[in-house]
Every structure is written in C-alpha cells, then in structure tokens.
Amino acid sequence: MEPIRVTVWGENRHEQREEHVRRIYPEGMHAAVAAGIREHLDCVVRTATLDEPEHGLTEDVLAATDVLTWWGHAAHGEVADEVAERVRRHVLSGMGLIVLHSGHLSKVFTGLMGTTCTLRWRNAHDRELIWTVDPAHPITAGVPQPVVIDEDEMYGEFFDVPPPDELVLISSFSGGEVFRSGCTWRRGHGRVFYFRPGDQDYPTYHHPDVRRIIANGVRWARPVRPERTLPALRRHETGEF
C-alpha cells in the first residue's frame, strides 16, 4: 500500500504574534502536528499555512492529498471562500479531513456540517480526561483509558453539530463539564473526524496520546476509493403512475 499523503494545515498566527505560544511551538503548531503523524504512520507529510498563496491549498495540492488536517482559530474569516469551497469539494470527492480543536468554527467544517458548530468554552487551565466510548474503533487503537491532559481549554456541551455517525471519544473536565470530543461523519465519499484537544496556550500537540489519536484518525480517514469523484445524484424518469 502506498504511503498516506497528508497535508497539515495551520493558521500560524498565534505562533507569529504571541511569544508564549512561540516558546511552546517554536516551529509552529502545524509542525508539531506533522511530527506526531510521522511518528506513527508510513506517510508523506507536507504543511500549509494561511498566509501562503491560496493558503497553501491549491487544486494541485489537494489533488495530491489523501487526508487534510485543519487547525484554525483567530482568522477563520480570512480563509477565502473559494479555498474553503475547494476543500469541501475534495472532501465530498473522497479526501479525508481531520478538524482539530477550534477548527470547529472554520468555514470548511461549518460548511460540511450545515450547523453553527458552536459550543461552551472556558480557558482556565482545566484538566481534561478523554474517555474511549468505542474501543473497537480504529481511532482508539493503542489509546489508554483515559487519556489525561493536565491543562487545556475546556469545551462543553451543547456542541451544535449533526449527530455523529460514530461517537468515539468523550471528555470530562475539572469543572464537571463533558464534551463529545471525538466524532466522525461521512460526507459524500469523504470521511471527517473532529478531535477536540489543542488550544494554542498549552503543549497539547506534544502529548504522545494526542499524537497517536490524530495519527489513528488520519489512517481511518484515508480514501478507500481508487479515484476521487463527486457523488452522483441519480434521478430516474418514472413516467406516469
């Protein structure tokens, strides 16, 4: 089997503007996510960021991408509509998509979900416990029960997304909140995995179990069809009844 071709997309704004984030991720959050994927998979990984031409997501780049990971936060509105639509079209045609943390409000994710994708949140150094609720799912392979993240931003319900096709992980926080932190959907021929952890103020993407879950998600989201094509909407003339 050919290596998985992964594009790791990161907004890369906090790292440029905030010294404490740069200390945690000196090469950028996208570089940390890419390194974690390389640790676990036979893959070819490239990175792309917001300020590159076409945000680094040209037609050629997406055509050569099996799975795209997406992290954004402060500049969702700066993502060009045509690029967001290009990504959506590739997902419907078979490309896998991993949406991380605050990417829940990205144009890409909200466009695919068709809902506001809003949630409750609190950035107060909460401890997070990530619980596996589907131990047979490939995304949870090799993942301890629970995954302990000492500090991260809290996300809480209600999470305004369509009911997941599969609920894989849930999180509980030191304030008592719970959250559906690992959800999958199928959109057209593509697979989508949303994974909650990863606020820029914390070293979450250096966490070995977070890295493993993301890599497992990439493996799961890999296209299964030999060619990338949009789903066909079939209509048949029925004549008169």
Rank of each mutant, 00 (worst) to 15 (best):
residue 122 R to Q: 10
residue 153 E to I: 00
residue 76 H to K: 14
residue 71 W to L: 13
residue 102 S to V: 03
residue 156 G to A: 15
residue 71 W to V: 13
residue 107 K to L: 12
residue 139 I to S: 12
residue 148 V to C: 05
residue 86 R to F: 12
residue 211 R to K: 03
residue 182 G to F: 04
residue 113 M to S: 09
residue 181 S to M: 01
residue 141 A to I: 10
residue 143 V to Q: 08
residue 164 P to A: 06
residue 78 E to D: 15
residue 125 H to K: 02
residue 176 G to M: 06
residue 171 S to A: 13
residue 144 P to W: 07
residue 119 L to N: 05
residue 201 D to P: 05
residue 125 H to M: 02
residue 214 I to T: 08
residue 137 H to Y: 09
residue 151 E to G: 02
residue 155 Y to F: 15
residue 84 A to K: 05
residue 71 W to R: 00
residue 108 V to H: 07
residue 162 P to V: 01
residue 125 H to N: 12
residue 189 H to P: 04
residue 126 D to P: 01
residue 134 D to E: 15
residue 182 G to A: 02
residue 142 G to Y: 09
residue 76 H to M: 11
residue 137 H to K: 13
residue 174 S to C: 03
residue 103 G to K: 11
residue 168 V to F: 13
residue 101 H to C: 08
residue 130 I to W: 02
residue 202 Y to P: 01
residue 107 K to P: 00
residue 161 V to L: 04
residue 199 D to K: 01
residue 75 A to E: 15
residue 113 M to I: 12
residue 180 R to I: 02
residue 151 E to R: 04
residue 85 E to W: 12
residue 79 V to Q: 12
residue 88 R to V: 11
residue 184 T to H: 00
residue 88 R to K: 14
residue 115 T to L: 00
residue 197 P to Y: 04
residue 212 R to I: 06
residue 138 P to V: 07
residue 135 P to M: 11
residue 139 I to K: 10
residue 131 W to S: 07
residue 90 H to A: 08
residue 178 V to L: 11
residue 185 W to N: 02
residue 165 D to A: 14
residue 98 I to E: 07
residue 192 V to M: 09
residue 97 L to C: 13
residue 136 A to D: 15
residue 97 L to H: 08
residue 202 Y to I: 10
residue 139 I to H: 09
residue 141 A to Q: 04
residue 174 S to P: 04
residue 91 V to H: 14
residue 211 R to Y: 06
residue 190 G to V: 01
residue 182 G to V: 12
residue 183 C to I: 03
residue 131 W to I: 01
residue 75 A to Q: 14
residue 140 T to W: 13
residue 213 I to G: 02
residue 211 R to A: 15
residue 75 A to H: 15
residue 184 T to W: 05
residue 165 D to G: 10
residue 90 H to C: 09
residue 195 F to W: 08
residue 183 C to R: 03
residue 134 D to K: 14
residue 78 E to Q: 15
residue 154 M to K: 07
residue 147 V to F: 06
residue 74 A to K: 11
residue 180 R to L: 03
residue 208 P to C: 04
residue 81 D to K: 04
residue 189 H to G: 00
residue 98 I to V: 15
residue 118 T to P: 02
residue 75 A to K: 14
residue 157 E to G: 12
residue 110 T to S: 04
residue 129 L to I: 03
residue 168 V to L: 06
residue 132 T to D: 12
residue 89 R to S: 11
residue 185 W to I: 05
residue 76 H to P: 06
residue 212 R to H: 03
residue 166 E to H: 15
residue 210 V to I: 14
residue 84 A to W: 03
residue 123 N to A: 08
residue 205 Y to G: 13
residue 109 F to W: 12
residue 207 H to I: 08
residue 139 I to C: 13
residue 202 Y to E: 08
residue 88 R to Y: 01
